[in-house]
Nucleic acid binder design. Structure first.
Lengths: 228, 228
DNA sequence: TTAGACAAGATAATCGATTTTTTAATCTAC
DNA sequence: GTAGATTAAAAAATCGATTATCTTGTCTAA
């Protein structure tokens, strides 16, 4: 028997350790808005919540702080970063620049395997949407779709930054309840993005991507403003 | 008495903890090339080297892994990331895009305080160069200069990514011994960058920045090729 | 020979307890 | 009353020891 099934999607292919498990779970919960922004984390409570000892928990918290999903202060532990309009604008602006760049490069580099992956990812996403999002399913497939879209951009660092920005952006977008109406419009764009990618129309694809991020930004902003 | 002196330049204003101290030191050493690329880190040896216990050491290693200066694998600890031509190209390319963008924005936003800071940073850097680099002095002032140059770009995330890319780039640039000849040429450009920034000539400044990064890239590439 | 099983040693990860520092509450002097 | 000192409780950071996993070398059976 071998360990071919990755049990964790942590930093790299880290599997199995308590630290990586709690990292994954905490990351999901932070991105999914299950903590209050600005909140101070009570480490002992987290120990219970994630069923893990102190050492692996602290290691996970340290990683998340370095990743930007937590802030760590002097000798007073960890807290969930505050949200701000300025930061949301910053994140959205950066997404525009970086995902636009990545998409153009991906369209230039992507091979036919990419085309297949893209179609598959879009299909899975659409199907999940019909069944109306049981749990985190749609979120995961959505992330996966955007990841696939830019995957062959040729820059490991660009992909890394984009991923990080997505996590940060989702802290805003996923405030409050779901909005199926707007989602439909955004889902429409996902398919148009695939179309344009397959046609290798980099210019139009980038414009659509800009629009897509703009629309998502408006959703996120609304959520943020309602949430305050 | 208060604690107005920051004792550490860690992730945020983290001061005092053993973890943050060892994080800073390890980061310096990794960026400065005092570890062999690809090397597996012997945690017990690090404990002695940095005079610190296992827990804070592991926390620092976890942070560095999330930051990208280490890689962490399954259940077999930490290692220093390998170097590769492809990655160097990627990093340099990303620096071109991001620092160019940041510089343009900084020139648009920077106030007169920035101008003063910039002149000061350039002066300190030049002076350190004359006294011929005692220890890490020049490196630190160099980092500081580039940081100051883009500081008022208005994007926290852009600054963060640039910082990260600098650390990665320096893993290549700082292989092997110093090269005073080329450094002189690069130092020249630092002053021209200040000139153009003060004149608010964004276009020329960006071109010069591109050239500056290109030249640095050539140095780094040479080092890398000699180092293999 | 050589692939696979096994055991011993080394290393990584985790635990439980201790030390240090912060926080909050109370007290005291003005 | 209020600023500052004092101290008890809480929380963070760290330590020392334990447990789990990997690695290496040796052996055995085909």
């Amino acid at each position: 028997m071998n360990n071919s099934l990755p049990k964790s999607a942590g930093p790299a292919g880290l599997a199995g350790t308590a630290s990586s498990r709690v990292f994954d779970n905490l990351r999901k919960d932070l991105v999914g808005g299950r903590f209050v922004a600005g909140e101070k984390l009570a480490i002992n409570a987290l120990k219970d919540r994630y069923q893990v000892g102190l050492s692996p928990l602290r290691e996970a918290l340290n990683k998340l702080a370095a990743y930007g999903l937590l802030v760590q202060e002097n000798q007073r532990g960890f807290r969930v970063p505050k949200l701000s309009r300025d930061e949301l604008d910053d994140i959205a602006q950066m997404r525009l620049e970086m995902e636009g760049m990545a998409l153009e490069r991906a369209i230039a580099n992507g091979d036919s395997l990419w085309e297949a992956d893209l179609l598959a990812a879009a299909h899975r996403l659409k199907r999940a949407d019909i069944t109306l999002d049981k749990g985190e399913e749609w979120e995961h497939l959505h992330t996966q779709f955007h990841r696939t879209l830019v995957a062959p951009c040729g820059s490991v660092w660009l992909l890394r930054f984009i991923e990080q920005l997505h996590d940060q952006f989702d802290r805003y977008r996923r405030l409050g309840p779901k909005m199926p109406t707007i989602r439909q419009e955004l889902d429409e764009q996902h398919h148009q993005l695939v179309e344009l990618a397959l046609q290798r129309d980099a210019k139009m694809a980038r414009e659509l991507m800009d629009d897509h991020i703009h629309k998502s930004y408006e959703v996120a902003l609304k959520r943020y403003q309602e949430h305050v």
